[in-house]
């Protein structure tokens, strides 16, 4: 019986190893600076905890076996129910580990805060992200272009995402590059990431937003800085091929739809992102962007 159990467990473990070696496990193979540090942090924290967990496992097996009822040779002290030295030891031992973890937590929370700009050799590229029902809109304010359900980023360049939603709450997440942050209507959250290798990575929403939630996937393609600049220039110039992201175009886009095709816009209304955030502050205001001048508006930060 026990051999069957052990065999099954071993087979399962082997299958897991084979699977993991043939598939990409995004978090263990990070392609961004933040993702790399987050992975290392997880490994350090896990190893620290094993310092307690392994003794617990060993003690469970040893005690259960040694003090089994039919082992008459083992010591039996039925009234021995406290010993201050032992008890202090296992209050102190976990506390020591938690103190170390607490220091790591405090430092990493600040160092890897999503709001903290990343220092890079080049200035950051801002991208404004809008979660819609059920697609992602990416506005490149510097390049003056926009995309839907596809994200293109330059490698080794800090990216400053400003994130909101014109839909229920979503969460903006590219696991290969690093952690996520919520996209909420009427709020503008921030996320700073930097890709360290070119390639196409999976991006998605990590918070339930309704029936079309499962289709909120997008490819995040990281290309060289030159290729990014050339691509942005190409889109900007192709006004005949791609439309303009004006307010009416945005309103058509934002009606609920799932599995929306990848789309490009050759030009944008520069006040659009601010308008999307602020429209929840005064929902009865006129629907033209001009009534709320962007210049007078501070975008509220979440919490």
């Amino acid at each position: 019986m026990y051999f069957i159990v052990l065999g099954l467990v071993a087979a399962a473990a082997a299958a897991v190893v084979v699977f993991a070696s043939t598939h990409t496990v995004a978090m263990f193979d990070p392609k961004g600076t933040i993702g790399l540090e987050e992975r290392n942090l997880m490994i350090v924290a896990a190893l620290l905890m094993l310092v307690v967990v392994i003794p617990v496992f060993v003690m469970t097996f040893v005690f259960a076996w040694r003090y089994r009822a039919d082992n008459e040779k083992a010591e039996y002290t039925p009234t021995w129910d406290h010993d201050i030295r032992y008890e202090l030891a296992w209050w102190a031992f976990p506390i020591a580990i938690i103190i170390v973890l607490a220091v790591i937590t405090w430092q990493s929370s600040h160092a890897l805060s999503p709001y903290r700009p990343i220092a890079g050799s080049v200035p950051p590229v801002p991208v404004d992200v809008v979660a819609l029902d059920w697609k992602w809109l990416f506005i490149y304010p510097q390049q003056g272009i926009a995309t839907v359900n596809m994200l293109k980023l330059p490698v080794d360049t800090p990216i400053a995402f400003h994130i909101t939603a014109d839909a229920p709450m979503n969460s903006f997440w590219i696991p290969s590059l690093g952690g996520q942050i919520y996209a909420m209507p009427g709020m503008s959250t921030q996320l700073h990431l930097m890709a360290s290798a070119t390639g196409t990575y999976e991006g998605l929403s990590a918070n339930l937003s309704g029936n079309g939630f499962a289709s909120m996937h997008f490819p995040a393609e990281v290309v060289s800085r030159a290729a990014f600049a050339a691509w942005a220039q190409g889109v900007r110039n192709a006004t005949g091929t791609y439309g303009a992201l004006t307010l009416p175009a945005y309103e058509a886009l934002s009606t609920p739809s799932a599995r929306y095709p990848e789309t490009l816009y050759a030009s944008i209304d520069p006040s659009l992102y601010g308008w999307i955030v602020m429209k929840y502050m005064s929902p009865n205001a006129s629907t033209t962007t001009t009534t709320i001048p962007m210049s007078t508006m501070a975008i509220p930060r979440a919490l």
Binding site: E38, L41, A45, P114, G179, Q180
Partner: peptide, 13 residues
């Protein structure tokens, strides 16, 4: 592990 906020940004949800 998930109580470490920086790790939770990856593991959350």
């Amino acid at each position: 592990l998930m109580a470490v906020p920086a790790a939770d940004f990856q593991l959350h949800n």
